[in-house]
Structures are given as structure tokens and as C-alpha cells.
């Protein structure tokens, strides 16, 4: 299960298409607002079904990626869930504060379609390794 949060519908479309074409994860749930995602997660808490990973944008209106992950990470239950942040930014400033708030992987958004597919491949591989490393 992949939870994707991005206010940019075009990027969301690109990501979804890239996931489709690479036939990576089967389940993708997309949110255009971080608050929707947090509400959803809270309801899901009882179903004991944990997300596989979270893919989020940085710059979003109202609640940005950093603030959203801070709230998400405040619940120890999700400690194991890896968070990947995808942003247009490649600034040290943004990268540092992303890792500080609990992001596990920071990637810059690609600017070609092949770039997007490569990025999805990279993320899938990285998440696989993450769970291998954190296997209890």
C-alpha cells in the first residue's frame, strides 16, 4: 500500500502513470491535502492495516509536507513506516529540515517522463531494502 500526498494533480497523474507502467505497487491511495491523509490514517488505525510507505510532496498549501510528517511521526505506532519526500527543491535547507522532521528519503522531482519511471523504480527498491533491514 502506497499513500501519495501531493497537491499538484498533474504530478499525481504522472506518478500514478509511472506506477502503472512500472507495475510496482498494486494499491495506491492519493491525497491532494495532507489533512485528508491524516484523517484517513486515524480512521484506519483500528483496522490494523498499516501503510507500506508514504510518498509526499514538500510544498503544499495549508499543511505542508514537513508539518504533516511531524504530526504523523508523533504517533509512535508508525515509527517503522518509511516516508519518502519528493520535491522540486534540491536545497540543503529543505533536505535538512525534511530529515529532521522524520522523512527517511528525500528525492528531487524529475523533469522527464523516463525520469519519473526511474524514480518510482528507485523508491520501490529502496522501500524493499528498508523493510528487509527492519525485519523483526
Amino acid at each position: 500500500m502506497v499513500y501519495i500526498i501531493d497537491d499538484d494533480s498533474e504530478d499525481l497523474e504522472l506518478i500514478k502513470t509511472a506506477y502503472d507502467e512500472t507495475k510496482a505497487s498494486e494499491d495506491i491511495i492519493a491525497f491532494e491535502d495532507g489533512r485528508d491523509f491524516l484523517n484517513y490514517i486515524e480512521l484506519k488505525e483500528n483496522s490494523k492495516k498499516s501503510p507500506a510507505y508514504i510518498l509526499t510532496d514538500l510544498k503544499m498549501p495549508a499543511l505542508d509536507g514537513i508539518q504533516m510528517i511531524e504530526i504523523f511521526r508523533s504517533n509512535n505506532k508508525y515509527n517503522i513506516i518509511p516516508v519518502v519526500m519528493l520535491s522540486t527543491s534540491n536545497l540543503n535547507y529543505d533536505i535538512e529540515r525534511a530529515y529532521k522532521c522524520g522523512v527517511n528519503c528525500f528525492l528531487t522531482k524529475p523533469d522527464t517522463y523516463n525520469g519519473w519511471k526511474a524514480t518510482v523504480d528507485k523508491i520501490e527498491l529502496w522501500v524493499k531494502r528498508w523493510y528487509e533491514a527492519h525485519q523483526v
Binding site: 527543491s89 524529475p110 517522463y113
Partner: peptide, 20 residues
């Protein structure tokens, strides 16, 4: 610059798609 980069990346991405 941050906000300028977003649409520009789109221009590049979709130009790329168009080219391909």
C-alpha cells in the same frame, strides 16, 4: 524561485513527453 521551478519542471516534463 521555488514556485517558478514548479511550472518550469512541468514545461520540461511535458515537452519531454511530447518529444518521446
Amino acid at each position: 524561485t521555488h514556485d517558478l521551478q514548479e511550472p518550469l519542471r512541468k514545461v520540461k516534463t511535458f515537452t519531454d513527453r511530447l518529444m518521446v
